[in-house]
């Protein structure tokens, strides 16, 4: 019958209209910011540097690998040096530019010292365009407990790996 396809279409929309009052599946809005969806574990948004106990004990030794591998080149690292000018295994300057970073996660993959990981923070809007978006070393430091809280499975794996690497060294240091 002419017009039957049109009526079938209207019945589908009517079904959606009525069921949207009853089932949650047909009304999928999440009323942000009152309700939020939980963030997935592997979600990567912006990197952070990890430290063990005190902010001075950061794991990064400023080897510069992440800065070289970063595709858009958003990381700037300057190695620290002590009073005589001898280079130390610590970064003096570690800047990541938020307006350049594309959240690819390659810096986390290539770091040999498990020092940089991707964070879950995404509500990072700022008012200034240049100064406010350049994250310095102090803004990037976060404790290892934070890492364990946001990514428990990855943190457990990394901890096991570090412990396994640290184990053979202990008898050696004991004898020394």
């Amino acid at each position: 019958m002419f017009g039957w396809g049109v009526i079938k279409g209207m019945l589908v929309t009517l079904k959606n209209f009525i069921l949207s009052y009853f089932t949650k599946e047909r009304l999928t809005t999440v009323q942000y910011p009152e309700e939020r969806l939980p963030v997935k574990e592997r979600f990567r948004n912006f990197p952070f540097l990890i430290y063990d106990n005190k902010p001075e004990d950061l794991r990064c030794v400023s080897c510069d690998i992440c800065a070289k591998e970063c595709p858009p080149k958003c990381i700037t690292i300057v190695r620290d040096s002590d009073e005589q000018g001898k280079p130390l295994k610590r970064p003096k300057v570690f800047d990541i530019d938020f307006s350049i970073c594309m959240n690819c996660g390659i810096c986390e993959e290539v770091c040999p010292f498990d020092a940089i990981f991707m964070d879950h923070e995404f509500e990072l809007a700022k008012f200034g365009r240049f100064e406010d978006l350049n994250y310095r070393k102090e803004d990037l430091l976060k404790p290892a407990e934070h890492f364990a809280k946001i990514r428990p499975q990855d943190a457990a794996r990394i901890e096991a790996k570090r412990r396994a690497k640290a184990q053979p060294a202990t008898p050696e240091t004991k004898t020394q």
Binding site: T28, K40, E41, R42, F43, R44, N103, G105, I106
Partner: peptide, 24 residues
């Protein structure tokens, strides 16, 4: 209607790869 179904697949991508659209 299409996006309602697509969301499920994109959530799956986010679970596995870390991002819904730029999976890398």
């Amino acid at each position: 209607y299409a996006f309602r179904e697509r969301e499920k697949i994109l959530d799956l991508f986010e679970d596995v790869a870390g991002s819904r659209m730029m999976c890398n």
